[in-house]
Simulated assay, not measured.
Amino acid sequence: MYKTWLKTISEISHISPEALENLITSTIVVLCYLGVRLGFKRYIRGKINSKKLAEVATEVIPSLLRLLLLGALLGIWLSGQASVASFFAVPDDAMEKVVASIYVYLAYIAGKLLGEAFIGIRYHLDVDKQYSVRKNIQISISILCVAALFKIWIATTADFSTYLGLLSAGIAIALQDVIVSLVGWIYLLTVRPFKIGDRIEIDGNRGDITDIKLLQFSMLETGNWIQAEQPTGRILSFPNSFVFRNMIANYNTGFDYIFAEMPIMVTFESNWHKSLTILEDIVKVEIGQENADASWQIHRAARTMRLSFDNFEPKVFTSVADSGVVLTLRFLCRVREKRVVEERVWKRVLDAFAKHDDIDFAYPTQRYYVNHIEGKAEAGGPAAAGAPVPT
């Protein structure tokens, strides 16, 4: 009955029975897809109360359903590979490889979607973990798909040898920089001179590493025209080959602290002893609490590298400049908190110095010095204390 009906419609519509049967089957599959999708939406609204699961379900599962639909339609229309191959005028074995490659690509997309579902459920609030797990999943799926494509298209050893020879000749001539970048990528994954989130300086540029790809790495630029190494908002990208050609300074290797210095200048007439005491008290109060963690991190790092930090305590050094006495605060602070710490210390310094009339900040000024009036008695100044001041 079905075949008779199918043959009659085929004669009327001038469509081959095979194509007509595929069309009917495809229509049924599409209707089933629409029904499942509609039922799934209603299920989510009524049964899933978790916001996290609802987000994953509404984003990932419909995409998986579309992939299944596409795979089913491809299976229906490509089931007669001989006829499709003859239509496109390609050999049957080549057509089989094309179809298999399409399914590998669909499997690649499905794997990424399942990975996203796993990440969304397992690491819903941990953004850093989401990124690292996502990259690992993508790399793993890509390697598996490339291996599958090699298996499909390079079936024999002879084919592989010919392909490898031609590929090697082309690479040796034209892709030298690409090869170095690929080796650089392997170097970044194995030796790990820096990782995602580290702040580095390379080729005169500073920034926080945001991504490491097969051929390049990227970082969020800091400093430049922005004070105190704050982010500029620009993303800088470098080929992985840069790691072999430039020095890399890593702010986070071993421990997450750097030494910072704040020079504060007071006038020669100020009570610099009192200023020194005030600054020592401020820096101990504001920075002292960080020293315990910094000391622990540095001692831990000293197990694997030679570090010669003898004293981690904040300190104030004294020196003299043209315009006054320079009191330099030296202390440890976290890499990304330098500006915040300096602002906090400066506020305390300004408040403290404002309370003392015998302390003034120094700045570039010009004054005349009259030695016989202001100088010391032994250096050509007034003959003795209390002597009349010459006019």
Score class of each variant (00 low, 15 high):
6 L>T: 00
7 K>M: 12
16 S>K: 06
17 P>Q: 11
17 P>I: 06
20 L>H: 00
25 T>K: 14
29 V>K: 06
29 V>S: 06
32 C>K: 01
34 L>T: 11
40 F>A: 10
41 K>V: 15
45 R>I: 10
47 K>H: 11
49 N>M: 08
50 S>D: 12
54 A>I: 07
55 E>T: 04
55 E>R: 07
62 P>V: 04
65 L>S: 07
69 L>V: 04
78 L>Q: 09
83 S>A: 14
83 S>M: 13
86 S>R: 02
88 F>G: 05
89 A>G: 01
92 D>F: 10
92 D>Y: 09
96 E>L: 12
97 K>S: 12
104 V>S: 12
105 Y>Q: 09
106 L>V: 08
106 L>A: 03
107 A>K: 03
110 A>I: 00
114 L>T: 00
118 F>N: 02
120 G>K: 01
125 L>W: 02
130 Q>H: 00
130 Q>P: 01
131 Y>M: 03
136 N>F: 06
141 I>C: 11
145 C>A: 14
150 F>K: 00
153 W>I: 01
160 F>L: 11
164 L>C: 07
166 L>T: 05
167 L>G: 13
168 S>T: 12
174 A>I: 04
174 A>G: 15
180 V>A: 13
190 T>M: 06
195 K>L: 03
196 I>C: 09
198 D>P: 07
203 D>L: 06
205 N>Q: 12
207 G>D: 03
208 D>Q: 08
214 L>S: 10
216 Q>E: 14
219 M>K: 07
226 I>H: 09
228 A>R: 10
232 T>G: 10
233 G>W: 08
233 G>P: 14
236 L>I: 14
239 P>A: 03
240 N>C: 12
243 V>D: 03
246 N>D: 15
247 M>I: 11
248 I>D: 04
251 Y>I: 01
255 F>T: 06
256 D>W: 00
260 A>V: 11
261 E>Y: 06
262 M>N: 05
264 I>D: 03
266 V>M: 01
267 T>H: 02
271 N>V: 13
272 W>N: 13
273 H>N: 09
275 S>L: 06
279 L>Q: 08
280 E>Q: 15
285 V>S: 14
287 I>L: 15
290 E>Q: 13
299 H>D: 06
305 M>G: 07
306 R>C: 11
306 R>P: 13
313 E>H: 07
316 V>S: 03
319 S>N: 08
319 S>H: 07
323 S>D: 15
326 V>K: 05
326 V>E: 08
327 L>N: 04
331 F>I: 11
331 F>D: 05
336 R>D: 14
345 V>R: 06
352 A>W: 05
354 A>V: 01
355 K>G: 04
356 H>P: 04
356 H>S: 02
362 A>F: 11
366 Q>S: 15
368 Y>L: 11
382 P>R: 10
385 A>C: 12
